Computed example of a mutant assay.
Amino acid sequence: MPEIFRMFGMKFFFYSLEHLPIHIHVRNADGTAKFEINPVKLVESHGIKTKDLVLAEALVEENKELITKKWQQFHG
């Protein structure tokens, strides 16, 4: 499970056997979420507080080029 980055107690990662569209998983102490990258949108969440989802979405938006680059490096 390649980790892309960690910020504010949240881990941003994808799984090694992923599928399109490009997306990122987020985990914190409360739960998990999944965001598509282009355009950035929440796909699902379980347990993460709304304020943390808002922050996670902003971080995904801010880092979507990095996420896309890492996805392409790993998945080809």
Rank of each mutant, 00 (worst) to 15 (best):
D52I: 04
H23M: 08
D30V: 08
E65V: 05
A29D: 12
R6A: 09
F12K: 03
N38V: 05
E18L: 03
T32I: 13
E44I: 00
K64P: 08
K70T: 15
G47I: 00
M10H: 02
E18S: 15
N63W: 05
N63R: 13
Y15I: 04
H46A: 15
K51Y: 12
P39N: 07
G31S: 02
F8H: 14
L42Q: 00
M7H: 13
F74N: 02
P39A: 11
S45K: 08
Q72V: 10
I22P: 01
F5T: 00
H23G: 05
F5I: 00
P2G: 08
L20V: 01
K69H: 10
I37Y: 10
E44L: 02
E44Q: 06
D52P: 00
E44S: 11
E44G: 00
F35T: 04
I24A: 07
I4T: 02
F35M: 05
H75Q: 14
V40K: 07
F12Y: 12
Y15E: 07
E36R: 11
T32Y: 08
L20K: 10
P2V: 12
L59C: 00
E3C: 10
V54P: 04
I48K: 01
V60G: 08
K70Q: 15
E18A: 14
F35R: 01
H46I: 12
T32P: 01
L17A: 15
A58R: 14
F5D: 03
G31K: 05
L55I: 13
N63D: 07
L66D: 04
K11I: 14
G47S: 00
H75I: 09
N38C: 04
A29W: 06
